[in-house]
Simulated assay, not measured.
Amino acid sequence: MPRTCLIVDFGGVLTTSFDDAVRGFEVREGLPEGAVEKTWYRDPAMVELTHDLERGRATQYAWNRRLGRALGIDGTDLLGRIFADTRLDESMTSVVAQVRAAGLRAGLLSNSMGLAPWNMYRGFDIHASFDAVLLSAQHGMRKPEPAMYELILKMLEVPGDACVFVDDNAENLPPAEALGMATVLHRSVEHSSTRLEQLLGVVVPGIPQKEN
């Protein structure tokens, strides 16, 4: 039977590529290619600080200062500058709208990184666009902690086996699968749209429809 609920990540799923934005930032700042990844994702102290930020235990201001010092650049609004090139992916937001228009439920499950000075969700009314919204920092936890997935199911009032979960990070999929969700690793609108049409039984935008 088709599933009846869609749960999606935000950054990198409903937006354009974060990786592309990072590369553009490095060019603008005159940094070597890969400098942000090396300093952010491979430094245990920065990884820990990022996790604290996602759980709401640290501020963007502290995060910006730390990474700015590590990169040797100005840390003012650093997250905002790193992701300045990201935009809403209107094709994917249309998928969510079409799913809800078909009478299915939709939830947002996002590892947030604070809301100031950079607000990842600015310009998109997440609360009007979803039946339930779970931002990690507002609940003191982060994906892939199982409690995140359990809570969004409770908020949506659906069992795991009724849901499809879409995320661009493969590490975030196993906890969803453990609760019975079908999962989609987002790589393109075309791929995700095709899989969602198969799993939800709803025709969604992004797929050229066959002519009779």
Rank of each mutant, 00 (worst) to 15 (best):
T76N: 01
G201D: 06
C5V: 10
S112E: 03
L185A: 08
L135K: 09
R195I: 00
F165Q: 00
K143V: 04
A97W: 02
S112C: 06
A132N: 05
L173P: 07
D43R: 00
D125W: 03
E26M: 04
S136V: 04
R122W: 11
T50Q: 15
L109C: 08
S110L: 06
I126W: 13
P208T: 15
P175C: 09
G56N: 10
A170G: 01
F10I: 11
H139Q: 12
V184C: 11
E37G: 07
D52N: 13
M1I: 06
R57D: 07
M148G: 07
G140S: 14
I207H: 09
G30C: 05
S136N: 09
L153F: 02
D77Q: 04
M92H: 02
A62F: 02
S94Q: 02
V96T: 07
A106D: 11
K210R: 15
S17P: 15
D89Q: 10
V47G: 00
V184Y: 12
A116K: 12
E211G: 13
L151A: 10
D77T: 11
V204R: 09
P146A: 10
D167K: 13
G56D: 12
S192M: 01
R3F: 10
L196S: 03
A132R: 12
G107T: 03
D19Q: 15
L151E: 15
T76S: 13
F83P: 05
P175F: 07
A162E: 06
W118N: 15
Q60S: 01
G180D: 07
V202A: 02
G160P: 13
P2W: 04
M120C: 04
M1K: 13
R69C: 04
A102D: 06
D89M: 08
G30A: 00
L200N: 11
P2E: 13
E26W: 05
T15K: 07
H186N: 12
R122S: 15
A101V: 06
G12C: 14
A176Q: 06
D85F: 01
D125Y: 06
L14W: 02
E54N: 07
E150P: 03
A147D: 15
D74A: 12
G30D: 01
L135H: 10
L199W: 10
